[in-house]
């Protein structure tokens, strides 16, 4: 499930920082490492996880790799939450209407 991977990938605070930085625009590994208290190899590792989760994509320019936010990964995650709310609100509506506004519900366990 792509959304589950995306949620898990973003649960790590450093990866979240990397991802949020990329939201502002494409960056190289060096750019990212310069703004974070972690080493370049660590940043590369985080980028790999984000990439596997479909949240970032990689593009080579000359000798450098640039990373940017992947719209498809975000779409998956968004779709997951959209689906969750559709399901939850439909269930909520059914419960609220079945009780019909009557405060004294029979409790028939």
């Amino acid at each position: 499930m792509a959304y589950a991977e995306a949620i898990a990938a973003l649960a790590d605070p450093t990866r979240r920082s990397v991802f949020e930085t990329l939201r502002a625009g494409p960056r190289s590994v060096g750019d990212l490492a310069a703004g974070l208290p972690v080493s370049r190899p660590a940043v590369s590792q985080h980028l790999r996880v984000l990439k596997d989760a479909g949240l970032v994509r990689e593009r080579r320019e000359g000798t450098r790799n640039f990373y940017s936010v992947d719209g498809d990964g975000l779409a998956d995650l968004r779709e997951y939450f959209e689906g969750f709310w559709d399901e939850a609100l439909a269930a909520f509506k059914a419960a609220a209407e079945s009780e019909g506004g009557d405060e004294d519900e029979p409790d028939d366990g």
């Binding site: 968004r78 939450f81 959209e82 709310w85 559709d86 939850a88 609100l89 439909a90 269930a91 909520f92 509506k93 059914a94 419960a95 609220a96 209407e97 009780e99 019909g100 506004g101 405060e103």
Partner: peptide, 26 residues
């Protein structure tokens, strides 16, 4: 993510079902 739904009951009832009886529908 923005979602809206119209429920046939009062505001008070809707709020109560959501926050006090979430276990019945979640």
């Amino acid at each position: 993510v923005r979602k809206s739904i119209v429920v046939n009951c009062s505001v008070e009832h809707a709020f109560r079902v959501y926050t006090e009886r979430m276990s019945d529908w979640y």
